[in-house]
Nucleic acid binder design. Sequence first.
DNA 1: ATGCCACACGTTATACCATTACGCAATTAT
DNA 2: ATAATTGCGTAATGGTATAACGTGTGGCAT
Lengths: 138, 138
Amino acid sequence: MNKHTSLTMDLTKNQSLVMNALSDAKTPLSAYTILDVLRDHGFRAPLQVYRALDKLVEFGLVHRLESLNAFVACQHPSCEGEKNETILFTICEKCGSVQELLSDKLVGAMRNLADEIDFTLKESVIELRGICSNCKDH
Amino acid sequence: MNKHTSLTMDLTKNQSLVMNALSDAKTPLSAYTILDVLRDHGFRAPLQVYRALDKLVEFGLVHRLESLNAFVACQHPSCEGEKNETILFTICEKCGSVQELLSDKLVGAMRNLADEIDFTLKESVIELRGICSNCKDH
DNA sequence: ATGCCACACGTTATACCATTACGCAATTAT
DNA sequence: ATAATTGCGTAATGGTATAACGTGTGGCAT
Ligand SMILES: [Zn+2]
Ligand SMILES: [Zn+2]
Ligand SMILES: [Zn+2]
Ligand SMILES: [Zn+2]
C-alpha cells in the first residue's frame, strides 16, 4: 500500500486510541496522562503508550514537544507520511495551547544559518514560549 | 553589589564546582552525570546539582538544552547577567558537541513570525540537530 | 501444511530526570 | 537583637522513558 494514502486507516487499535486521545485534547498530553486517559480502554503500562507514540510520530501524525515532554496531534496535513525538517511551535504559557507553523521564511533562515557555519542540518526543534492572541486580551 | 559585575566571582562553592564541571566538558552534561563527576567533592544528592544549575542558568552562565535534558556552559559572554530571548544551539549527533549562536537575523525572523500571528514572544527554544563541520569530513 | 519471519502486544523491572518537604546554619536587612 | 533571606544537606517522592522477556498473529516461501 502506498504509504501516502490514508495512513490514518492503517493504525492499530492502540495507535488509534492514542491518536484519538491527542486529537480530542486542547493541549499537549504527556505519555503518562495518555496512559491515565486510556486505562478504561485496557491500557496498563507506559510502554503501550510509548510504542504507539513512536509510530504516530514516525507517521507524522503526532509531534513531540521537547520543552514540555509532551505530545500533540499534528495540525498540518502536509506532515503526514514525511518528516518535515523544520516545524515551529508556539506554546501559550497561560492556556497551554499549541500552534504549529510551517514557514518557508523560517526554513530558509535556518538553512542559511546552518550553511554559514558548515552545519549539516537534519532536524530542528523550535518551540516559542509566550502568550497566545486569545489570552493576551483575556 | 552590582549584579552585572563579575558574577563569576560571586559563585558559591557548589555553584563553582558545577560551573567548572560544565566548562571542562566537551559536551552537555545531564544533572546526574554532574552528580557523579562531583561525588569526590562531596556531592551526594541530585538537589545539590539542580540548585546550583538553577542559579547558573539564572545568571546566564549555563544554558539548558531541552531536547537533551542536559546543560552546557555558555559560550557567549553577552549572556552573562541577562536572559537572551533568542539563542540558537546546534547539536552534533555524531560527536555530541554544541555550538551556541546569537543571530540578529534569527531574532528578527522570530519576532516577525510571532507578530504575524499575534503571539507575545517570551522565550525561544531553538535546537538544531545535525552533523558539525568537524564530523562531516571523515 | 510446515516452518519461518516480522510485528504488535502485554508485563515486569529498571533507569533516568526533577521536585517537595524538612531542618539547620550563615548572611543580610531592619 | 531580631527577622528575613539564602545556601546547604538529606530523605522521600513524583514524573519520564527504556530494557528485557515472552506471547500471539498474519504473511509467505518452501
Ligand atoms: Zn505537523
Ligand atoms: Zn493562551
Ligand atoms: Zn550564552
Ligand atoms: Zn561533530
